[in-house]
Write a protein that binds this DNA or RNA. Structure first.
Lengths: 146, 146
DNA sequence: GTATAAGTTGACATTGATGTCAGGTTCAAG
DNA sequence: CTTGAACCTGACATCAATGTCAACTTATAC
């Protein structure tokens, strides 16, 4: 598939896809005219890359990590060196901490939202069924590592 | 307390603390000489601010959110307007999605780390007790919202 | 008082992924 | 062949928090 379709299907801009290639995260065949031609598998890979970026990994680290990942086709993948594994373990722990912090922030937001929601119930006509949740369960809350 | 101590206790640089003040996130009394003087409560607030930054909120939104938060002293806080509440709800949902993605990335890293770890066990002398975990439970995995 | 540590403001730099634009080439359909 | 859409490369801009440096002032200990 070509870059436009890949961009549409992944929600990642063409600009970013070219950047990923430049950083060695993504390879593409080329047509005789020089246009990029991506395999179907690229969709999953791009989504993974986006997630890893969102997790705060830099492109260089992602580039080292990718060949060690089990691909969707289960093909042979490299094994991380001990050095890389240690590096990734540090990243994983950082992500764990980040998840805990995010859950924290989410709960803070929830509290403010719920307070506003309750206030609205007071002001509105009583017994007017509110749409949307008013309480959230505490998944994640306090369930994080550390 | 003064800015140096606050920086040390929160792990946030003095530069950032001054930036927070400039953006209206943090207030400080001033000594007669113009030095900032923070109340004890500032420690918690700075940590909260950092968490909210980590959650991807921008300083302007944090500035609007902070007065609606229940302070440690339980003091009177503003109630979010419906508009702000809706805004924050969108942020909360974004954070929820981010947590799910992060858990995804964490699991990907775990897989690579474990593969390398197992490889090392093969190469090393057999029956050599390895330090560190080799398997992780699946907290968060698939337990996210959506 | 004097030395030194800590604080102040202001300006400029950095980072890294992504946006945007320009000028040119390729592709696919008529 | 022609036309318009899609793609190419390369360059420059952006964003927002934070780093860094300079020149100066205040606080503290001797």
């Amino acid at each position: 598939m070509r870059i436009g379709e890949l961009a549409r299907r992944t929600g990642v801009s063409e600009r970013s896809l070219r950047y990923y290639e430049q950083r060695g995260l993504l390879v593409a065949d080329r047509t005789s005219g020089g246009h990029r031609d991506y395999p179907e598998q690229a969709v999953d890979r791009v989504i993974r890359i986006q997630e890893l970026f969102a997790a705060g990994l830099h492109s260089r680290k992602i580039a080292r990590l990718l060949p060690c990942m089990r691909d969707a086709d289960g093909g042979p993948s490299e094994i991380a060196t001990p050095q890389l594994a240690a590096d990734l373990a540090a990243e994983r722990d950082r992500i764990d901490r980040m998840i805990t912090e995010l859950a924290n922030s989410r709960d803070v937001l929830d509290e403010v939202i719920n307070a506003a929601s309750r206030r609205q119930i007071e002001e509105d006509a009583p017994r007017a069924g509110r749409s949307g949740r008013c309480r959230r369960d505490d998944r994640f809350t306090g369930a994080g590592p550390n």
